[in-house]
Write a protein that binds this DNA or RNA. Structure first.
Lengths: 235, 235
DNA sequence: CCTTGTGAATCTATTCACAGCG
DNA sequence: CGCTGTGAATAGATTCACAAGG
């Protein structure tokens, strides 16, 4: 094994984004296995449960270090702890949500946002109707006061489209450098801010794209809002 | 221009997934431009607003056909109509949401789920407390009755983790072939079912990963739950 | 003998750079 | 002359296939 390329002692290799996104999936699957009594797991099993290729599992995990035992597999418990460490969820991350409408409220109460590693420390809105209400155990505060509070590590934008850029500017001015945007809007941020999108509308449109193609391939004209043209079949 | 590789008349080229995901973004940006009075747009402008590289915009759009005019750019209105057609959102897609908790309710009321192309035709749950209530303009029905209703094109899983696979099975048995899963759970579906994930927990963990790395690089020890080791600075 | 870890091969996506057209 | 459309170059991710280790 080469210890040649740069530093890596204590997980310091470069990890591709595609891998980063799969690590939480492995972690989740491993936790399930652990609960059902498993102690070791092979890349083959893990791959099966995560619905990916086994070679990919091994390559992904090898980026964190050599944690497996040849002939046996990986120790589930130990692997979880290594993944958690790599993901940084062995720390505590303060999260603020801006925009406490239906979605913001749902996020504040969701499993994902209240799991190990993440702590909702602030909820913000601009509407007087919402400010002062309590969601979960947190009181919604005026967005204008955000800068007075301790700066969260992660800011979540759950406002309507029109307000998203402005809110993002407020967050970044307060020093937030990781933003998760749920508004259907492309955002501009400085190069030192990490920005990710969760876009429901895009997901639906992607589904629509593939479903359309499928109908077209199948020549399934009954499903199309076709107006009496002769069906173009590919039999 | 080569008309050699296979069929393409009327948008039948293979379109890479990465492109499919960007098309709704272009569409959104173009709609905004149109509203502010623009009629034509260059790849450069579009790229700027969508925060991507201009060559990528041109390559993406060229996959739909040659819709631009050299020296001038693209006609915004026409381009929108072509993107809509490629995405299939010029049709109407019946959408069912299963799991009418906080998240399901938020989705049912969201901009994205009620936009052109998508129509919520069914809301389902298993809890007697929720069945019969009205969300938006739709009454929540018993999931057990789903098969009695017309089959939706797209099924949205918004249940807690434990119920997600079972619900997915109900949906696919009813004939649903596009599933959007919000539950933090890997799902198994047949090869003819298109499955996409929206996973809040994963998004947060990805942010956590990059934020951790940043702190580590910066040697920002004040932020770490460090226990008195001497700071490794890079001054 | 079983399973990891990883180079090499392949596939996919992005970016460059420019010919060609309006 | 400006901007599109696209081959060719590059970068990134996945998969194969196997040597090496317990």
């Amino acid at each position: 094994m080469s210890r040649s390329t740069g530093d890596e002692a204590g997980s310091r290799r470069r990890i591709p984004e595609a891998t980063v996104v799969r690590l939480p999936v492995y972690e989740r699957v491993l936790s399930g296995l652990l609960r059902s009594g498993a102690t070791t797991v092979s890349s083959e099993q893990l791959a099966e449960l995560a619905r990916v290729n086994a070679a990919k599992v091994r390559k992904d995990l090898s980026l964190l270090g050599s944690f497996g035992t040849r002939g046996t597999g990986y120790d589930a418990q130990f692997l979880i702890s290594q993944i958690d460490r790599a993901l940084g969820v062995d720390r505590d991350w303060p999260v603020a949500i801006v925009g406490i409408g239906n979605l913001g409220r749902a996020l504040a109460n969701s499993e994902g946002f209240n799991s190990r590693g993440f702590r909702i420390t602030g909820l913000y809105d601009v509407s007087p109707e919402v400010i002062g209400t309590v969601v979960g155990a947190v009181t919604v505060r005026d967005l204008a006061r955000l800068a007075e509070d301790p700066c969260p590590a992660i800011g979540v934008v759950a406002t309507p489209q029109g307000a998203a850029q402005e809110v993002t500017d407020v967050l970044t001015r307060a020093g937030v450098r990781s933003i998760l945007n749920f508004a259907p809007q492309v955002l501009a941020v400085g190069p030192d801010v990490m920005l990710r999108y969760v876009d429901l509308s895009i997901e639906l449109q992607v589904m629509s794209f593939y479903q359309s193609r499928r109908y077209a391939e199948e020549g399934d004209v009954t499903r199309l809002r076709s107006v009496g043209l002769s069906p173009t079949r590919e039999p």
